[in-house]
Amino acid sequence: MDSATLALEIKKIIVECLALEDIAPEEIETEAPLFVEGLGLDSIDALELAMALEEKYGVTVGDDPDENQKIFFSVESLARFVTEQRG
């Protein structure tokens, strides 16, 4: 799967699993911040999203808070993380 397709798939997961309204997956900017600014997700969303990614791709975030903050920064960083984890 190429990176654009993966990014789109992640956007769909974000919209569906977080029950976001008024935004289509395609409208989420790949490089924009997901939390606080940008899409404006919150702490409950972060927990939910981590679970959804594990379910879909079998990837688990690690135990380093700084690293996780980088992973959850944007769709782009999440896609990179999924790609690296799946090898």
């Binding site: 972060a46 927990l47 981590a50 679970m51 688990t60 135990d63 808070p65 996780n68």
Partner: peptide
């Protein structure tokens, strides 16, 4: 403060016994 349960559980696992004061949203996850 650890946001992700993936950060929390390994830290609980290593070292002496632990107690946890959680919120329902975290505990559910």
């Amino acid at each position: 403060t650890l946001l992700h349960v993936e950060e929390l559980l390994p830290r609980i696992a290593e070292g002496p016994p632990a107690m946890l004061a959680a919120t329902p949203a975290h505990l559910r996850r």
